[in-house]
Write a protein that binds this DNA or RNA. Structure first.
Lengths: 363, 363
DNA sequence: CTGTTAGCGCATTCAG
DNA sequence: CTGAATGCGCTAACAG
């Protein structure tokens, strides 16, 4: 056996007592040594699960504070079965609706002592897929995700293995995942009925891409309401920019059958359409009545205050995350997941033609 | 030596070949075995750093795909020095301003192949401290944080050790941390000057708690502008709820020296004050002119469109995160950190009394 | 109630 | 260019 400076190599590792905790972060065995106990005792004191005699526990606590020891969660996660983290994938964080969802997720996770790894998909199925893989590689204990485009999403059980996943706001094709939604179709239908009650015969639906589940579901509700009233549908998708929207609206308004009321698919579309309406010099609700899907902070202060369908964004995030933690706790992977649908509210302000001084909320 | 069923205990571990990859996730040695190479070769193929002969690399790749092998990032992070994750702490995610900041952070991180662990502090220094500790225990490579209350924050270099930290939107006391801010004081000052140019002599500032750095900094700008114009300051803090704000505004407006213009500290205050103004039946800008700090999506569609100071939220998040990655790459812990101040823009719409048809932006 | 042993999956030595 | 050995910090499983 080779030697260095007369010291047998084999002994080297035992000999150096891993340096006298000079600058290295203190580890559990540092604590153990200082407290004069085994590492397991320290581990037990930390986890608190198993009983340890009061005074050794005290000695350990003292040692921990003295060394300013902090457990290495990475090692713990690596060793154990739980990483105590969940993944969250949403399309964008700059959209207040998604941000609200995310807020609820982080809040629930913190209550459970979990960390949240967050990422945005930009509505791109490939990005979404890659990011989900990354999270899986990080061994998250579960994932909450707002899936991107319905038909193209590659989020499937086979990707996730036995890692629980809850989809929310939009479903995925794979029926084995839990999903939490809101009443998109019913909400849209009801608000269109309201518009019709105001006497409108020509109501238009303006929205983003129909490949987004929610936008399509709301369109379906809109169309249903129109059909039942014996009216003709008139939808424009692809209101993806201010310019596109302005052009689309201009076309509509200059046609023979110009709509007298508009429903938008979500807040972004609302903004684009509002901008277009203003550019065309139209007045709400006298020239066109207006309703939007999704409420937002300032909807009360626009000119005029907007009638909208209000979705329980935070509630949805909370429910989805709670469901995920149930799955994590149970450790089972169901054949078919739950499908929870949350109710929406109609908030009647004045853009629809109502004269209420204050908003009227119908649930 | 004790034996079980005639099998020497010592051999047990060698004997069982860790079960034939039945349901266990494939590991690197599974790949190595299948490819007929050593684990190190697999590791090298994966990291791509060191050169490996083309055909062994190919064999390894095939084995990886065949087994659907995914590296265990947890083990990698645990073993190596980098966790390839950064922490992000912000007050709330439901505030669009913070959400925009967060969006930029996640975007930059993804570009660098990093994960983001996100959490909210609710403006509470204790929560903030605890959450920062958690992230440190998870061995994040760095942190980006919007600190809570300036004087009470416990975020210090000694907590972070040699983990780089960049504060943004608001500074911390510890001068060794980098910080990215916007021109709060200058922005507020300029917009107040604008209000004064409109002929206002009594301008009020209404905001949330002064213990928040930004709210205070903007107040300072406001006061400065008033002083320089020889006018008396008139500020109300603690506009923390709609009710409080309504009461505060009512008091102000019913006094002898009722303000003829108002500046709010941020979007939340803007909403409360707008609500209060509407409740009092006041008109903007004829009864009171109005300006707000912080632009928001719908500011163009309120009645009337709002004049605001626009902050580069996403830019700030980008700069802060880039700075963090610089620090991580350099691996140094500076004595005194950088202090970057980003410019703001004044967006003149109509609430200040301007008659512009379209917003005028002054940078 | 407490200590010892072993090994999670990977990458950093060091030897070929 | 490649492989074997070693240990990161922690905890499950077993002693005692």
């Amino acid at each position: 056996m080779s030697e260095v400076n007369g010291t047998p190599l084999l002994n080297r590792s035992k000999q150096r007592d891993r340096m006298p905790a000079a600058h290295r972060k203190p580890t559990m065995s540092d604590v153990a040594r200082l407290a004069g106990v085994g590492t397991m005792t320290v581990s037990r004191v930390l986890s608190g699960a198993v009983r340890v005699s009061a005074d050794t526990a005290q000695r350990v606590q003292t040692a921990i504070e003295q060394l300013k020891y902090r457990p290495n969660e990475l090692a713990r996660a690596f060793r154990g079965q739980r990483s105590h983290s969940i993944g969250l994938i949403i399309p964008y964080l700059y959209d207040p609706f998604f941000a609200n969802c995310a807020h609820a997720v982080t809040t629930v996770a913190r209550e459970r002592g979990y960390s949240v790894i967050i990422t945005t998909s930009a509505e791109d199925p490939e990005t979404e897929f890659t990011e989900a893989e990354h999270m899986l590689e990080r061994h998250v204990d579960g994932m909450v995700v707002i899936p991107s485009r319905f038909r193209q999403t590659r989020l499937t059980r086979s990707l996730f293995g036995k890692t629980p996943v809850v989809a929310f706001d939009r479903p995925v094709q794979d029926p084995s995942l839990d999903v939490v939604l809101v009443q998109n179709t019913a909400g849209a239908r009801r608000i269109v009925e309201h518009l019709i009650e105001h006497g409108h015969k020509r109501v238009a639906y303006m929205g983003l891409s129909r490949s987004l589940f929610t936008i399509n579901a709301r369109f379906l509700g809109y169309r249903r309401a129109m059909q039942e009233a014996g009216l003709r549908s008139d939808a424009a998708f692809d209101c993806n920019t201010e310019e596109d929207t302005r052009r689309l609206l201009k076309e509509k308004m200059s046609g023979k059958d110009a709509p007298t009321a508009i429903l938008t698919s979500n807040t972004l579309a609302t903004r684009y359409v509002l901008s277009a309406i203003s550019h065309l010099g139209l007045r709400i609700p006298s020239d066109v009545a207006f309703a939007g899907f999704d409420d937002f902070d300032m909807a009360e202060f626009t000119a005029p205050p907007l009638t909208v369908v209000r979705q329980p964004a935070q509630e949805m995030g909370r429910v989805a995350t709670s469901l995920l933690f149930d799955r994590i706790a149970r450790g089972e992977t169901p054949q078919t997941g739950n499908r929870i649908v949350l109710p929406v509210e109609i908030v009647l302000r004045r853009s629809c033609g109502c004269k209420h001084r204050n908003p009227v909320i119908m649930s």
